[in-house]
């Protein structure tokens, strides 16, 4: 595990915000110049700066602006596309990741707010994860686009409620939307994990 970014990279949020307009040497990850002075008229703060994010147990240097969402960084800079952009308002759970172990919507979380914190994406759970496996056994997926978000949500929920009953599962997993209608099997998958007793 690496040290938090703050001590290593000399990053501070206040400096980031204050200096963002002047970070003229910065370039976007895709190589084209990105930085311009903040426009006073719009009050926009632009400008990318390099920070370190702790994702799935590894430190990653990424370039972010104050407005960059965690989801955008995960998908386009780190290639972690398991969390999905489904809605801009985060009400569907499609972009669920764990921040310090708690489920959050990466689509509505600024990357800046995640500096120095542990981020776990669905890729961090891995193919052998018991929740992933239970989703496969119970066929808790159809098109699969909502599935990684659901897997992460179930993971977090069962960590908090390792002996959850069916009723508690039905009460506690309403943050994620599925259009294909996989809910019945998501409930079964969660209960399979509870029965397996490896969800602590």
């Amino acid at each position: 595990m690496s040290e938090p970014v703050r001590s290593r990279g000399g990053f501070s949020r206040r400096e980031f915000l204050k200096g963002s307009g002047a970070a003229a040497a910065a370039t976007a990850v895709v190589g084209a110049p990105l930085v311009a002075p903040a426009e006073e008229a719009t009050g926009l703060i632009r400008g990318a700066e390099e920070v370190t994010l702790q994702v799935n147990g590894k430190a990653h240097r990424v370039r972010i602006e104050p407005r960059t969402t965690l989801l955008e960084v995960l998908r386009y800079q780190l290639g972690l596309t398991g969390a999905k952009p489904v809605s801009a308002d985060g009400c569907c759970g499609g972009s669920t990741v764990l921040l310090e172990g708690k489920p959050i919507s990466a689509a509505t979380t600024l990357a800046l707010d995640c500096v120095g914190k542990q981020i776990t994406t669905v890729e961090g759970l891995g193919a052998q994860d018991n929740v992933v496996q239970a989703f496969v056994h119970q066929d808790a997926m159809q098109c699969g686009f909502c599935t990684p978000g659901f897997v992460v949500a179930v993971k977090a929920f069962l960590k908090k409620h390792p002996y959850a009953t069916e009723e508690e599962v039905r009460e506690g997993l309403n943050g994620n939307l599925c259009r294909c209608g996989t809910y019945v099997n998501v409930v079964r998958a969660a209960l399979e994990v509870v029965k397996g007793g490896r969800n602590g």
Partner: peptide
């Protein structure tokens, strides 16, 4: 039978059109 692509879907490995990343790509 379990789906043969079930793990890919559940673990986030499955790549949808939205997930395709190409070098030098713009949005």
């Amino acid at each position: 039978h379990d789906r043969i692509d079930g793990v890919a879907k559940a673990s986030g490995a499955a790549r949808y059109a939205y997930d395709i990343l190409e070098d030098n790509m713009v949005l």
